[in-house]
Design a protein around this nucleic acid. Structure first.
Lengths: 189, 189
DNA sequence: GCAGAATATGAGCGATCATTCGCTTTTGAT
DNA sequence: ATCAAAAGCGAATGATCGCTCATATTCTGC
């Protein structure tokens, strides 16, 4: 389909050539369609990038959803470990694209959507903490959720995108252990 | 001086109107000089943004340097707490500019410089940990430094830039406490 | 086979931008 | 007062971009 080709071409250009090279003409060219067709399906360049973001987020969610299904009924340490593993997998769906989007999203109107996206993580995590309140030593759930979600996101984001490009299984395991110890230690003192 | 006016104008535009509006003509206009003069002192737009970045980083360093002077001789908990406070102050030097720069730096060639900048933090922190090895329960210094630096940076960055715009003194104190507990707990088990 | 609808095309328009260069003004040493 | 160098100026250039629209092609139900 023309639409898919356009979204795919946009994603490819974002990854391989950067945001600045993602002109409508170039996107249409790479997609193998004409600019005219592009504007038949998308109101403008912004909408195309938004579509890429949405597709990427849904791919991430598909990858992660099952991973976190049983978590709600599990003890804190198990749950946290699984969350970190899930977060790493999420970042690995398409690391390069993830990076470009993270960097360029502020420029697109989609900023709100992404904040809602991370807000979802926040609420999900706080809900889990509420259900496990008896295991925890926290007095401010809001603050604790903020600290944990921020920490896990930053740790996995930096690990996948900046540190040693090829995250070996061994270092990866060490990272998961460290993150788990960090967060559970904080939650359960 | 013309140079200062240009750098200041660039910073103002970045904060008030965003990266896209920072055209050379507009910068010169706001600075009260002509485009010609702009190109007399800067090889191009990129160099101007780079100058803004450099100035901002130096302001941050000036604010933080003293803050972290005695840290190396202090116990882990005190040191970590001071580092977090310093990180928050650093982010508060010019939050709006800090945000724009963090978002737009990838687009400028200055990416390398910023990575070196955070690499400095990393090395500084690892050096401190080395000197306090006896107090710690860590087997991988490299990993522990990565975890701590990433965590502190993300926590303060998100707190200052995203959460509740007006970070009251009370929530701010709670955040510092939480961060300190998080990191020291991890380091000292 | 046909007509009309849906889809696709791409040259071109207007706007914007970074950058240049011939010119003018200011400065400061003599 | 003189004048050369330094600093400043801004209209003009050429390139790029997002986007439009008149035209061409393909599809669909009959």
């Amino acid at each position: 389909m023309t639409v898919d080709a356009l979204v795919e071409a946009t994603a490819r250009i974002l990854v391989r050539e950067g945001f600045d090279k993602a002109s409508t003409n170039h996107i249409a060219d790479v997609a193998g369609v004409s600019v005219g067709s592009l504007y038949q399906y998308f109101p403008g360049k912004e909408a195309l990038v938004a579509a890429v973001i949405e597709r990427h987020q849904q791919e991430i969610m598909k990858t992660v959803r099952g991973e976190l299904a049983e978590v709600s009924s599990q003890p804190v340490e198990t749950a946290v470990r699984k969350m970190i593993v899930a977060a790493i997998k999420a970042h690995r769906v398409n690391p390069k694209l993830h990076r470009v989007l993270a960097e360029q999203i502020p420029r697109v109107g989609k900023l709100k959507d992404v904040e809602i996206f991370s807000r979802q993580n926040f609420i999900l995590f706080r809900t889990y903490l509420e259900s496990r309140l008896d295991e925890l030593r926290v007095d401010d759930l809001e603050l604790a959720s903020f600290v944990c979600v921020t920490t896990i996101e930053a740790l996995t984001h930096n690990a996948v995108l900046h540190e040693t490009e090829v995250l070996s299984d061994k270092t990866m395991e060490a990272l998961v252990n460290a993150g788990t110890r960090l967060v559970t230690g904080y939650l359960m003192s």
